[in-house]
Simulated assay, not measured.
Amino acid sequence: MASNSGFTMVLPTLNGKNYERWQVQMKVLFGYQEVLDVVQDGFQAVEDEATEVQRSLHRECMKRDCKALAMIHQCVDDSNFEKIAQSSTSKEAWDILGRCYAGAEKVKKVKLQTLRREYELLQMKDEDTIADYFTKIRSLTNLMKGCGEIMKDQLIVEKVLRTLNPKFDHIVVAIEESKNLEDIKIEELQSSLEAHEQRIKERSLDRDPEEEDSVFQMQDLWPLCF
């Protein structure tokens, strides 16, 4: 945490898994500290025949560069610090980190494309329980989040509702008509569906298959009666 003119900043830390986010945050901090230009473009060495004005400007650039390099040192973990420990300028350190993570970010983006495709195709299977299906959804969305994807609860709730087994159609209609999907939490949805699934199992033990099918058909019509 750093303070400048009464403004407290929580400094981001590069830990090997968050480079994309980290470098965006760092650019904002560099801009706030008025050193972004020396980090991205560097500065020229002073010539022997340079004037006093040029030397003064060079000293100012060196001062700003040291400030930027100190910020980078504060905002990386031990592993990343070792990669830039011998860097003499902020641009050199910044470029080294960029090269180190360029390949990893490309791999992450390719993996994310594969996960998105898998997520789009995911459907609840006949043999899946509600708990099984939510586990699959959570596992996949966690992997996507790990690759940088932003997953809002509402989108996950909508995904679950449209990909459930058809035997849950009547409860899906009831939820969509009676609830604001923006307000439904994933845990709340799972709990409601599991309770309904349990009622289905209990009723199936007391009915023959033909009677059960008849009951489901009637249940499908109930939402239309209100």
Rank of each mutant, 00 (worst) to 15 (best):
M1W: 00
A2D: 02
T8E: 00
M9T: 02
T13W: 08
N15T: 14
K17S: 15
R21H: 14
Q23L: 08
Q23I: 13
Q25E: 15
Q25L: 15
M26C: 09
V28N: 09
F30L: 08
G31H: 12
G31Y: 04
G31Q: 02
Y32F: 15
Y32H: 10
V35A: 00
L36S: 08
V38F: 04
V38C: 01
V38Q: 01
D41N: 14
F43S: 02
V46I: 12
E47K: 07
Q54I: 01
S56L: 10
L57Q: 12
C61I: 01
D65F: 01
A68S: 07
L69Y: 02
H73A: 03
Q74A: 06
D77H: 04
N80K: 11
N80A: 13
F81C: 04
A85E: 11
Q86F: 14
S88A: 15
A93C: 10
W94A: 01
D95W: 09
I96M: 11
C100L: 04
C100H: 09
Y101I: 08
Y101K: 06
A102G: 03
G103I: 15
G103Y: 04
A104I: 13
A104M: 09
E105V: 07
K106Q: 08
K108N: 00
K108F: 02
K109P: 00
K109I: 12
V110S: 00
K111R: 12
K111H: 08
T114N: 02
T114G: 03
R116A: 04
L121C: 04
L121K: 04
K125Y: 04
K125T: 08
K125P: 03
D126T: 12
E127L: 08
T129E: 02
T129P: 08
A131H: 04
A131E: 13
A131N: 10
A131W: 05
D132E: 05
Y133V: 03
T135F: 15
R138K: 08
S139C: 09
L140Y: 05
T141P: 04
T141I: 03
L143V: 04
M144S: 11
G148V: 01
E149K: 10
I150E: 15
M151V: 13
K152Q: 12
Q154A: 02
I156G: 00
I156C: 05
I156D: 01
E158L: 11
K159D: 07
K159T: 10
L161W: 03
R162T: 05
R162K: 14
L164H: 09
D169G: 05
D169K: 15
H170I: 03
V172Q: 06
I175Y: 06
E177D: 14
E177L: 11
S178E: 15
S178A: 15
L181P: 09
L181Y: 10
D183P: 02
E187Y: 10
S191Q: 15
S191N: 13
S192M: 14
L193E: 03
E194S: 08
A195M: 06
H196D: 00
H196L: 03
E197K: 01
E197M: 02
K201H: 08
E202D: 11
R203Y: 13
L205T: 05
D208M: 09
P209W: 09
E210T: 15
D213I: 08
S214E: 13
V215P: 07
F216C: 12
Q217L: 14
Q217C: 07
M218Y: 12
Q219F: 09
Q219C: 11
Q219M: 15
Q219T: 07
D220H: 14
L221G: 13
L221S: 13
W222M: 13
W222A: 13
P223S: 05
F226N: 08
